[in-house]
Design a protein around this nucleic acid. Structure first.
Length: 956
RNA sequence: GCAGGGGUGGCUGAGGCGGUCAAAGGCGCCGGGCUUAAGAUCCGGUCCUUAUGGGUUCGUGGGUUCGAAUCCCACCCCCUGCACCA
């Protein structure tokens, strides 16, 4: 009710609609769906399961267009699968822990819990207003103790099996967020959330051992349908490199330097060893020597830098010698030890064997500090060494100068293997796979997250909270704004040691909120279970997620953590699934025009529209940019729904672009989609009131319905939503126009069409579909009913479709020719003679097609052709010429359909003749005559230019 | 530097196991029907040329083939991610 009274006036103003317009009462249908529990799923073993999921949203204040797009896509898939007879699990919830709520609390003095609750309410209302078909009973929220209890339980299990551990280590620290960050959350040395510089800080923190699953995470990518770029992103992030760990003894010391290398085949070319300045050995080796000062300077320089600065500074390579020598593990040579600013302490072992002859970076370093360069690989077999290398030879090569027998002449992988086995033999190293992925740092020094369930006891150390005491709930008596709020709650801090019972102190770190989102999809499968995180059999039944839709921005955070977590929980015996998501669809951005300065190459806020560039004063153009608050180019879904209704917004969003492509918001396109909705709205009434009789076109319409139904399913099965919507909301209308134009007006056929069509429109415009269902006299809801596929296109129907398609294409070309012809006719074209291709051409085409379709090469058709009956007379030369010049190229211009038509029994002359009246009228002619080429009736002598499916037309 | 994805007609954007491709759909533009008119809607047109044919087009240059937007090679440019990663 409120909907109508509020929207009408707006409508009138914006779109000047007539009074006849009455929008579907979308809210009423939504209520009906809810009342009838249409979208509530309980495990039904009679139907195949389908799990459709969108990345659950963070409850910021309002729903934005990105959400609307995401859910419109998911909902279309869910509705489609439902109507096709699947048991569809389609849940929604909220990723409701996180910093924005806490920051708002600091700023506005409202408790994060209250902000979150309030936001969730309003966003829920907006989501519901779109009519998405969620099973709301399964709604979950990260900040619900009934949910995060399980985060804590998993964590204690991980502690038990060593997957979770605490470690004092250098970690990423964000000053402005006042918390540590995981490696995945540092982008170009900056915090992923606030973009301020991230520092290194030594702290005792909790980690999850993600590298343990690195290989499986890499291999698993092969088994799932993720977009190529997401796979590549994850591969980069996992960073597998195969090589060897090699030990260098130190002259006059018991210590050893372990290095990692991917190029053991260059081991004999090592002329120095480089340590990271932070490497513990570097200190040991220089302490109290003349080299200490130089090392200290370099270390301080590196340590004081953020990763961001370091990246810039590192363009200049710097190093200092430590005055000590390492011993080559195989040759025993003495090799100077250096410290270099480019060696990263946290990658590999923090030490590098330097091979200047075959590594560019080492080469530059050796040149700079006058260190010898040794060539141990040649780039051609049996080649000899160059006198002096002027650059590093980094490709694989043949070993030379090995200094030991049995290596010279070996190449590539074989060379690597040989060196590794020699090292293993001498116990000086081993083959090893190194990963870039670091353990997941899960502690956060923030309030609004899951408390880490650990109690610190002076005697017993860190003790996990027993299961019976879970969940450890967040206290409310905290003060925000000064460090970790949890440290201000005495009631929270004080705890008894679960082991010895003595006074102890509770852990105040909370978990990274990515922990919440890394298993929520499992919880949905059994969301109402109060006893367990989820029942194993139930999770196994639904998982994995068949269709997962969300933004690309989670490609290496959420999607790695979730895949890791799935495997970790599997190994706890909680389910049997290896990969959480099968098909991943990353929907594109929603963009809208914003002012753009071509000179400065910047996008500006819409405030600048119409005025010159504030920086260079030149005139501003416009460019499409991601909808964002800073650009001010956002469109409020709420306003749009109010103006045009949810159905129109959904239709527009699905039709404007493919799901994965970026889409431009356009008000005029929205309007035009709304016109489509308006024109479809009364379709059932219109069609049901048709008063025609049976006509020859009925058969065509029926065949067309089957064809469209097949096309639609094909599109949906490939998640080509745009094509599906194009069929349901555009093409079928055109079919009806053609049907009517050709004299069809049979209400019985019309009803048949409507029964099918209603379902096709229901995936994108479900409210209107319900209106239609009602107009058709159905008492059950369209959303709850199954689709009855009208059947595939039979051979008979195909010939009907062919004949009509042939007629259409004939008209098209005849019309084209007519305009040209009329330039040559004084009084315009009034009559026409149509010459159908002579029989022998059709025969030639058929024989040649059969030959080609069977895989024959066109070249070898000539001997076959000369054997044909038609080539036996005087016309042989003519026909051979025709073959090469006309028929061969044409053969490949026909599509599969046309080919099928040529090979079919379709009689071109009959088809056109039977429609001659219509054709004449349509072309605006007084009369039209059809003759067979080279027959006695053909007086035009134009048979030469007639082709199968391409008659010649002579206008007079 | 490495990896992944791209460059198509006025714009947008499909297609891309070689022939269906002068290249879908949309927008824009043009013409026609309907209307008092506008809008909506319907029909048609929209690279050049043209009695049904020809020419030039899918980033640039080569190659394979009877035939290339599609396959191969080289180059240029754009986007994304990683990066002195050993």
């Amino acid at each position: 009710m409120w909907y109508q009274s509020q929207t009408r006036p707006l409508w009138g103003r914006v779109f000047c609609m007539s009074d006849e317009f009455s929008p579907s009462d979308e809210v009423a249908w939504q209520q009906k769906w809810a009342d009838n529990h249409v979208f509530e799923t309980d495990l039904d073993t009679q139907k195949p399961p389908f799990y459709c999921l969108e990345m659950y949203p963070y409850p910021s204040g309002k729903m934005h267009m990105g959400h609307v797009r995401n859910y419109s896509i998911g909902d279309a898939v869910a509705r489609y699968k439902r109507m096709m007879g699947f048991d569809v699990l389609y849940p929604i919830g909220f990723d409701s822990f996180g910093m924005p709520a806490e920051n708002a609390a600091i700023k506005e003095g409202i408790h994060p819990h209250d902000i979150t609750q309030k936001n969730m309410e309003s966003i829920t209302e907006q989501i519901k207003r779109m009519g998405f078909s969620y099973d709301w009973r399964r709604m979950l929220m990260s900040h619900d103790p009934r949910y995060y209890k399980w985060n804590q339980w998993f964590f204690t299990k991980f502690l038990e099996n060593g997957l979770a551990y605490q470690k004092y280590a250098p970690v990423n620290w964000c000053d402005s967020c006042e918390t540590v960050l995981a490696n995945e959350q540092v982008k170009n040395g900056r915090c992923w959330r606030c973009a301020s510089n991230v520092k290194q800080k030594d702290m005792s923190q909790w980690f999850l051992d993600t590298p343990k699953y690195a290989q499986e995470l890499l291999d698993g990518l092969e088994t799932i349908s993720f977009p190529a770029n997401v796979k590549s992103l994850q591969q980069d992030w996992l960073g597998r490199s195969e090589g060897a760990e090699i030990e260098f003894a130190i002259e006059g010391s018991d210590e050893k330097i372990t290095v990692f290398t991917t190029r053991p085949d260059t081991l004999f070319g090592v002329t120095f060893v480089t340590l990271a300045p932070e490497h513990p050995l570097s200190q040991t080796l220089v302490e109290g020597t003349q080299y200490e000062e130089g090392w200290k300077q370099l270390k301080n320089e590196v340590a004081s830098m953020s990763d961001f600065d370091r990246e810039k500074i590192l363009k200049v390579k710097k190093g200092v010698p430590l005055g000590r020598n390492a011993i080559h593990p195989l040759t025993g040579e003495l090799i100077p030890i250096w410290v270099g600013n480019f060696v990263i302490a946290t990658y590999g072992t923090g030490a590098v064997m330097a091979v200047p002859g075959h590594d560019e970076r080492d080469f530059a370093f050796a040149k700079q500090y006058n260190i010898p360069i040794k060539q141990v690989l040649v780039m051609q077999e049996n080649a000899s060494c160059e006198d002096e290398l002027n650059n590093a030879k980094t490709e694989l090569g043949w070993m030379v100068n090995s200094g030991l027998d049995g290596f010279d002449g070996l190449y590539g992988e074989e060379a690597k293997r040989a060196v590794i086995s020699k090292l293993e033999e001498n116990d000086k190293g081993e083959g090893l796979v190194q990963w870039k992925i670091r353990p997941w740092l899960v502690s956060r020094q923030r309030y609004w997250g899951t408390p880490i369930p650990v109690i610190h006891c002076t005697d017993c150390g860190a003790v996990p909270v027993p299961e019976s005491d879970l969940p450890v709930e967040l206290p409310r008596d905290v003060t925000f704004g000064h460090g970790n709020p949890l440290e201000t709650s005495e009631s929270f801090l004080a705890a008894d040691c679960p082991k010895c019972g003595k006074d102890a102190r509770r852990e105040t770190d909370t978990m990274d909120t990515f922990m919440d989102s890394s298993w929520y999809y499992l919880r949905y499968t059994d969301a109402l279970n109060d006893e367990k995180c989820f029942e194993k059999a139930v999770a196994n039944h639904w998982m994995n997620v068949d269709f997962y839709c969300g933004g690309i921005e989670h490609a290496q955070m959420h999607l790695i953590y979730a895949r890791f977590m799935t495997k970790a929980l599997r190994d706890l015996g909680l389910h049997d699934i290896d990969e959480p998501f099968n098909e991943l669809l990353c929907q594109g951005m929603v963009n809208k025009g914003a002012p753009w300065c071509n000179t400065c190459a910047i996008t500006l806020s819409v405030d600048h529209a119409g005025s010159p560039c504030p920086q260079c004063n030149s005139e501003l153009g416009e460019r499409s940019a991601k909808m964002s608050k800073s650009h001010g180019n956002t469109v409020s879904p709420e306003d749009m729904i109010e103006k045009v209704g949810a159905d129109t917004v959904r239709l527009f969003i699905l039709f404007a672009a493919n799901p994965t492509a970026g889409m431009d918001w356009s008000d005029s396109a929205l309007e035009s989609n709304n016109r489509v909705i308006q024109s479809l709205r009364n379709m059932p009434e219109t069609i049901l009131s048709w008063d025609g009789n049976e006509s020859p076109m009925d058969e065509w319409m029926r065949a067309r319905i089957c064809q469209r139904s097949c096309e639609f399913q094909r599109a949906m099965d490939a998640y080509d939503l745009r094509r599906a919507v194009e069929i349901s909301h555009y093409e079928i209308t055109k079919d009806i126009n053609w049907y009517i134009r050709r004299g069809g007006l049979n209400p019985i056929v019309g009803r048949e069409l409507l029964e099918v069509w209603t379902h096709l429109i229901s995936i994108s415009t479900p409210h209107m579909a319900e209106d239609w269902g009602q107009l058709l006299g159905h008492t059950d809801l369209v959303s709850a009913s199954q689709y009855q596929h009208p059947g595939d296109v039979s051979k008979q129907s195909q010939s009907v479709l062919d004949a009509e398609a042939y007629t259409r294409s004939f008209l098209e070309s005849a019309r084209k020719i007519k305009t040209i012809a009329e330039r040559h006719l004084d009084n315009g074209a009034r009559t026409a003679i149509v010459v159908i291709s002579p029989q022998w051409k059709r025969e030639l085409a058929k024989t040649a097609l059969d030959f080609i379709i069977a895989g024959g090469n066109p070249k070898s058709f000539i001997p076959i052709l000369s054997q044909m009956d038609i080539c036996q007379g005087q016309r042989k030369g003519e026909i051979m010429g025709y073959w090469g010049k006309k028929m061969l190229p044409q053969l490949f211009k026909w599509d599969d359909e046309s080919r099928a038509v040529i090979l079919s029994e379709l009689n071109e002359l009959e088809v056109l003749q039977s429609r001659s009246e219509f054709i004449a009228t349509d072309l605006g002619l007084e009369s039209i005559v059809f003759v067979s080429g080279e027959s006695t009736e053909d007086t035009t002598q134009r048979a030469a230019s007639a082709m199968p499916l391409g008659p010649a037309v002579v206008y007079n």
